[in-house]
Amino acid sequence: MKALLAALVRAVTGVRVGVIDGRPGERSRIYFANHSSHLDALVFWAALPEPWRERLRPAAAADYWGKTRLRRWVSEKVLNAVLIERLAPSRERDPLAGLMAVLNAGGDILIFPEGTRQPDGVMRDFKPGLFHLIRRMPEVDLVPVYLENLCRILPKGEFLPLPLMGAVRLGQVVPGLKEGEAKEVFLQRMRLAVGELGGNG
């Protein structure tokens, strides 16, 4: 059922990730990607080879993915997502706790450090969540991901996806937080790692 859905998403968007370095589960991974469409997490999930797909738990905004029954079904049953509270008043708990639990249990996560979808597909500055995660969990791998054309397939504010071709560009593992590296410097380095995959700095 899940494999079928993944194959369908791959067929519609034409995305595929080939060989991935390393073995699944050797080290937990934080995939971090640009964000331009509601399809991003679904397409990335579908593009991964099956053993990697099984381990993935994407971060998803609770205010969107928890809203209707269909979205809840997709995010919980298909994507196995970790719902994150983005809205300030309900952020009593540590917002990163859910993601850290996944990493501690040996799983991989996908986050979108821009925080929200960019309507024109141009990347914005990264929010500090990624920095706090890697500072608290230095032994996980950081993998940049560039998602191409998905903002044309399903832009912000549209409900009908177009059958255009997208692409998932998976980068190499990048070095984690360096000794004494400032937050802004680290976030900028991560943003460049994603941008380079898309052919722009």
């Binding site: 054309n149 044309r152 177009l162 059958p163 255009l164 071709m165």
Partner: peptide, 9 residues
């Protein structure tokens, strides 16, 4: 689909 994908709309 190929034609429109290459054309940045």
């Amino acid at each position: 689909r190929e034609f429109i994908t290459l054309n940045p709309t």
